[in-house]
């Protein structure tokens, strides 16, 4: 199972990188979402991929059972997903604004901050 998830994460990174190379803002964003999902999968795999019990201590026993799942990676992923969600919303709004301001979705065509014109050196 670990192997399959690793391959899946690798495939997602590959696909995401390919999309990011295209230069179009929207594809860049979709690529980023793919890669961040791949990273979440990587964190998920670090918590062992087995059928496990809930990580609660039984009152009668008093210690954690040996087959309990590791809850930390899940908490990490949850945090990462929430943060990623917020960033994605912002970036989507930024892409929309950039498109309506500059009339292009191609990052190579956006030359407002770094103009193409040659200026005479001092």
């Amino acid at each position: 199972m670990d192997l399959w998830l690793s391959i899946l994460a690798g495939t997602l990174v590959a696909g995401g990188s390919y999309l990011m190379m295209s230069g179009a803002m929207l594809r860049f964003l979709l690529g980023l979402v793919l890669i961040s999902n791949a990273v979440n999968l990587v964190i998920f795999v670090t918590g062992r991929m087995t059928y496990a019990g809930a990580p609660f201590i039984d009152k009668a026993v008093g210690v954690l059972s040996a087959d309990a799942a590791n809850p930390v990676p899940q908490a990490l992923i949850l945090t990462a997903i929430v943060i990623g969600f917020g960033l994605f919303a912002f970036t989507l709004a930024l892409a929309l604004r950039a498109y309506s301001e500059m009339g292009t979705d191609d990052t190579d065509e956006m030359r407002e901050a770094e103009p193409k014109t040659e200026e005479k050196p001092l």
Binding site: G86, A89, F90, L92, A93, L96, S100
Partner: peptide, 17 residues
Amino acid sequence: GSVTGIYLALEDGIARS
């Protein structure tokens, strides 16, 4: 607050464009 804020701002932006 933040989700509806972002969403409504986006809707306004689309309506304006």
